[in-house]
């Protein structure tokens, strides 16, 4: 398993490849590979989406995705 941390100013649902992955500001479990991250709900964040390759993360060094 890989680990991803999606930060945003508020608590929102994180979507990976259009599907619910978890909540913002939590350490989330994800499968290794290419993923497209977005947030559910209002489009009041930037960037619109983050495409990332998630691999070689550890529980102490998760991949960080930042939305503003």
């Amino acid at each position: 398993m890989e680990y991803v941390f999606v930060s945003f100013k508020e608590d929102r649902t994180v979507l990976a490849d259009g599907k619910k992955l978890g909540q913002t500001n939590q350490t989330l479990l994800i499968e290794k590979g290419h993923h497209c991250f977005t947030l559910a709900g209002m489009q009041n964040y930037n960037p619109e989406k983050v495409d990332a390759v998630i691999e070689q993360t550890t529980v102490l060094s998760s991949y960080n995705v930042k939305f503003y």
């Binding site: 992955l21 978890g22 909540q23 939590q26 499968e31």
Partner: peptide
Amino acid sequence: NIPVKMSA
């Protein structure tokens, strides 16, 4: 999607 149930 068991990882989502775990993460939550």
